[in-house]
């Protein structure tokens, strides 16, 4: 690990004031310390934001505001979250381990980096880690990498479960930074790799996430399901966050977000549009899933994700349908 300076921020504005090139914000550390030890992250300065007073979960009208420093375990255990956004609790509980969830923050969860083997190994090329060095995953191990929205430069996936649920719930990410405050609607925080895979998100240098705000829960039934070959403590092969509202046999509302298929949580808008106004039947769900996945561009070793995602969409919606 490269030597670095360490400072604890007193407030969000203090954190931003301390930001200079080479600075990184330290939350729970569960991914940043990991990446520093691998030599993937090489900050000159850490500004510790883990103890900022951003650790409350509080209602704002019919919305719910989650502080950026709320620990994942506290988020999942919160009575309001469990009652109003059970799918969100499920997504958080599906991630990592009990001890990691005790440490990891909401903002840190959203900003975790891909688990692509090449990204994590500084002795191998990676366009995300070293732009222009190449993407060996396309010819090599991409078995758990992207089938949607990838580019010739990068086929990484985003590993967060939380982000998938937030994408379905249309949460807003509150950011402060050198350029002032702004609000980013999910899934807009994360971007597709294009020709700049080094950028996971739309955040600018020095930006600090201060909160995530949830709109009132959408009507209908919701679910989060994560598929993995190890029964726990594993990143998803595919995950889904879904909300389905059926009135008189007709789909009046539907939201589907997919995880581990793309560089960002993937809102299945084509599938949603195909379903809304139509019948809530298995055939309709299958058609919608296939409409969405027609965009998939699988590689030889991750082609299984397409039928897996299709099955998962259909099965999840069938379970949610009345």
């Amino acid at each position: 690990m490269k030597p670095f300076e360490y400072a604890r921020a007193g407030s969000p504005s203090d954190a931003v004031r301390r930001f200079r090139p080479g600075t990184m914000y330290l939350g729970g550390g569960t991914n940043l310390v990991d990446l520093m030890r691998l030599g993937v992250a090489r900050p000159e300065r850490l500004v510790d934001v883990s103890r900022l007073p951003l650790d409350a979960i509080e209602p704002v009208g019919d919305r719910l505001r989650i502080g950026a420093a709320v620990r994942n375990s506290d988020l999942a255990a919160d009575p309001l979250i469990r009652r109003r956004y059970p799918m969100l609790a499920r997504a958080v509980l599906a991630g990592a381990s009990g001890q990691v969830r005790n440490m990891a923050t909401v903002a840190g969860n959203l900003l975790q980096r891909t688990r692509c083997a090449y990204f994590q190994d500084v002795s191998r090329p990676c366009n995300k880690r070293r732009p222009g060095s190449g993407c060996p995953a396309i010819e090599g191990d991409h078995s758990n990498l992207a089938v949607l929205g990838a580019s010739d430069a990068c086929v990484a996936t985003h590993p967060s479960d939380l982000a998938v649920a937030l994408a379905a719930l249309e949460a807003e990410v509150h950011v402060t930074g050198p350029g002032g405050d702004r609000i980013i609607p999910m899934p807009g925080l994360h971007r597709l790799p294009g020709d700049a895979p080094e950028r996971d998100t739309v955040l600018e240098p020095g930006d600090l996430i201060t909160a995530v705000e949830l709109p009132a829960p959408p009507p209908g039934a919701s679910a989060y399901r994560k598929v993995r070959e190890r029964a726990s403590f594993a990143f998803a092969l595919v995950s889904i966050a879904a909300v389905l509202d059926v009135r008189d046999g007709v789909v009046s509302g539907c939201r589907i977000a997919l995880g581990s298929l793309a560089h960002a949580p993937w809102r299945a808008e084509r599938a949603e549009q195909a379903l809304i106004g139509g019948p809530a039947t298995g055939e309709a769900f299958l058609e919608a899933a296939e409409a969405e996945l027609a965009q998939a561009r699988p590689l030889p070793r991750n082609a299984f994700k397409v039928p897996l995602a299709r099955n998962l969409i259909v099965n999840t919606l069938e379970e949610l349908a009345p």
């Binding site: 310390v33 009990g98 001890q99 005790n102 440490m103």
Partner: peptide, 17 residues
Amino acid sequence: VDGRRANSCLALAVAMD
């Protein structure tokens, strides 16, 4: 850490002050 289980390998000692 403060009564809650945590991975001590991922915690920087300075941050635990």
